[in-house]
Design a protein around this nucleic acid. Sequence first.
DNA 1: ATCTGTTATCTGTGATCACACATAGCAGAC
DNA 2: GTCTGCTATGTGTGATCACAGATAACAGAT
Lengths: 244, 244
Amino acid sequence: MEDKSLPEDPAQALDPTLGDRMGKIVRLTLADTVYRDLKELLLAGRAAPGERFTLRGLAAAIGTSAMPVREAVSRLAAENALEVLPNRAVRVPLMSRARFIELRLIRSSLEGLAAETAALNADASDLAEINRCERLFAAEREKPRPDGAAAMHFNKDLHFALYRAARMPILFGMIESLWLQIGPVLNLDFQAGPERVRGGEAHIHHAALVEALHRRDGPAVRQALLADIWHAGDFILSRGILPD
Amino acid sequence: MEDKSLPEDPAQALDPTLGDRMGKIVRLTLADTVYRDLKELLLAGRAAPGERFTLRGLAAAIGTSAMPVREAVSRLAAENALEVLPNRAVRVPLMSRARFIELRLIRSSLEGLAAETAALNADASDLAEINRCERLFAAEREKPRPDGAAAMHFNKDLHFALYRAARMPILFGMIESLWLQIGPVLNLDFQAGPERVRGGEAHIHHAALVEALHRRDGPAVRQALLADIWHAGDFILSRGILPD
DNA sequence: ATCTGTTATCTGTGATCACACATAGCAGAC
DNA sequence: GTCTGCTATGTGTGATCACAGATAACAGAT
């Protein structure tokens, strides 16, 4: 029987220090750029659910041909971040109550796992970054006129710093994909105005999370995160703006 | 303030029964076909980790131009089912031990959720289908010369019938994406020969799972599934064929 | 014989074009 | 005024081409 071992990565350079000494050239394609831009658009909640896109329109907006846009859009569609209708039209997916509730359940499972793992694997710099985001969010809330968009941004940074600390790259990508899907409705959330930030209890869960993280108490970190996810979801559901 | 409600789906046909009486025309593009074919290739484990593909090669094999292949490949790359190297070459991702272990953790979380939910939502036809798959797998194992590939197929059908019963479409898609990633190594698993099917304890976990499912005992279903996933993972890890 | 620099071929990327389908706008009939 | 059918425009899909970078084969030097 022939060798069953899996193929190895290609051989490295002769001088191993050489690669470290000069920054690698990252050639990124136009499709990558468009992909990243659209991703940012969705994550920041600057695209409303149901909004339609045309390939030529996007291409013109970015200043390229339709080709890179096609590739970027099909990638996003594969992640459920965009939707291609049977008519072949492409739009930001609608968010029904059922879909939102399912996403919240999946997020609890995956982000809970990431949070608990982060409690084990976070190093000093991870903790510092998480602390920084937590303080920024809390500070924004304390302001006389809190900026909803800014708070939402700090909230996202806090969550992703936590998930990054778990050092599970595949899991991180999957969570990012989930946030891509809820991005368009988070938009509606902070449009609710400053009282959302002021009145919410997110800062309480954040504080509990950070505290448990420093104690390296995985289950407690997970618990605090789940409370955060669940409460934010309840707020959106209670607003009654999701169809179905 | 303007209307905050989300856009609705387009209006339906005037005669609501008409749509039901004539099977809808599904126009599927070449890109969809290529996507489905490549997916099947990976899921069935007929592609080895590290194997390289060229767009033109795939296009010639299927009898189309490179264009639909490009779209299919970029979709699969977005799901981590394929990998584009910095050289822009596309290959089946390598499976390191770390990656395998991370995937097993994520699978436990997601498939555990699906299993527990299925216990609540499964209807009679779901149960029947799951029973059928379980019997087929057990029967294959009892044979004097069990067919590893066939057993693996029944195993997959059993798992997916269970996950489908949870009625969580997004979760189902994510699990499918995970299986797409482990498909290439499952191949190596059943290549281990009939003793893998015979000696394994998969049938025990399957039986426990089905039994718990009929009792609608969600936690028990999850527990049986986790045992199945964990044990199969241990077997592959113990073979020592995964690099890193 | 081994290594290095060159050249030829191949591969992915992106632009452009042709085609089929979908949609919207408009005119005519009732 | 409302409905039906046609027409014009727009859109996604897929093929083809040009180009830059990568890979591999090869020749010359040491």
